[in-house]
């Protein structure tokens, strides 16, 4: 059949028009042929929903949002266009909730048990359900405060621990070491003092022996005299030795005391309990840090990290 140009143009334009209308309705999610039902609801806020957002009943899509607008009393009125076959009881609740963390919001109809069904143009109750992210956003501060408090307590404990070491033990230990040092120094001083005398004595002895050698023969009476002075020298030597013995004994007694667990230093050295305590603390802290590292979520579950990401 040969068509005239007018017919061809007519067909083209008509088909395009039909396709455009159908396509438009399709994109706006208006069922093309089926009957639709409009119901509306109010929410405190309308974050994340817009024209075309999905309306679900138990996870099954039954329609979409057709208008979202602000009412005079500051609430949000949402009109939904539902498949005509959906029956919504009067006491159903529309929840504005999110599909997932990144996906948009949708409306979920929690069907009630009433026998009365909502008519076309009717209205049901609406509840705005805070999403995970919003929850995190709102409670983030609180959680951050908690965490911060925990951390400061930990800090305080560590500081106290440090102080304990600083103030008592450290000072005592310093004292003990100071005492020991003093003793050693005194000992050294004594030896220094007596060193001259010893040397003198030895040299004197030496010169005396040589003199003795020469004088022995020709000065017998003088030898006796020398012998006397030698005796006195030896006595003096013995006294020095006694003094040294005493110093050693007192050093010994200090070391004994330390060994015996007397005084802080002694306790530190001898009492294993304290060491154990410290050791235990270190392990515990190690564990804590490792735990945080491995599973931050467990400790920072309520932190708003996800929001940051």
């Amino acid at each position: 059949m040969k068509m005239s140009n007018e017919v061809k143009v007519g067909i083209t334009v008509l088909l395009a028009f039909i396709v455009a209308v159908v396509g438009f309705r399709f994109m706006r999610d208006v069922p093309i042929l089926r009957q639709t039902m409009e119901i509306s609801t109010h929410f405190e806020r309308g974050d994340g929903i817009s024209q075309g957002s999905i309306v679900n009943v138990r996870g099954v899509k039954v329609g979409s949002v057709s208008t979202v607008r602000l009412t005079d009393d500051g609430r949000v009125r949402v009109t939904m266009r539902l498949d005509g076959r959906t029956s919504v009881p009067e006491n159903s609740v529309a929840q504005l909730t999110s599909l997932g963390i990144v996906e948009g919001k949708s409306i979920v109809l929690q069907l009630g048990d009433s026998d009365e069904m909502v008519e076309h143009g009717g209205e049901i109750e609406g509840v705005y359900v805070e999403s995970m992210t919003e929850l995190l956003g709102n409670r983030g501060e609180e959680i951050a405060d908690d965490v911060s408090a925990s951390l400061s307590e930990l800090n305080l404990f560590l500081k106290q621990l440090n102080q304990t070491f600083d103030d008592d033990v450290s000072a005592q230990m310093g004292q003990a070491f100071g005492n020991a040092e003093q003793v050693t120094r005194q000992l050294s001083e004594i030896l220094d003092q007596k060193k001259g005398e010893i040397e003198q004595a030895i040299s004197a002895g030496s010169s005396m022996l040589s003199q003795l050698d020469t004088l022995a023969t020709d000065n017998r009476p003088k030898v006796d005299n020398i012998m006397d002075s030698l005796e006195s020298n030896i006595e003096e030597l013995a006294r020095v030795r006694e003094e040294m013995e005493r110093a050693t004994a007192s050093l010994n007694s200090i070391l004994e005391k330390i060994d015996g667990g007397e005084g802080t230093l002694g306790k530190l050295v001898n009492d294993s309990e304290m060491y154990d305590n410290l050791n235990e603390l270190t392990i515990e802290m190690n564990n804590l840090v490792r735990g945080i590292n491995e599973n931050p979520g467990r400790y920072l579950r309520h932190m708003s990290i996800i929001e940051i990401f």
Binding site: S4, N5, E6, K8, V9, I11, T12, V13
Partner: peptide
């Protein structure tokens, strides 16, 4: 015009 409407529109589909 109708000839052109056909050539521009119908024939270009």
């Amino acid at each position: 015009l109708f000839q052109e409407l056909v050539k521009v529109g119908y024939d270009s589909v």
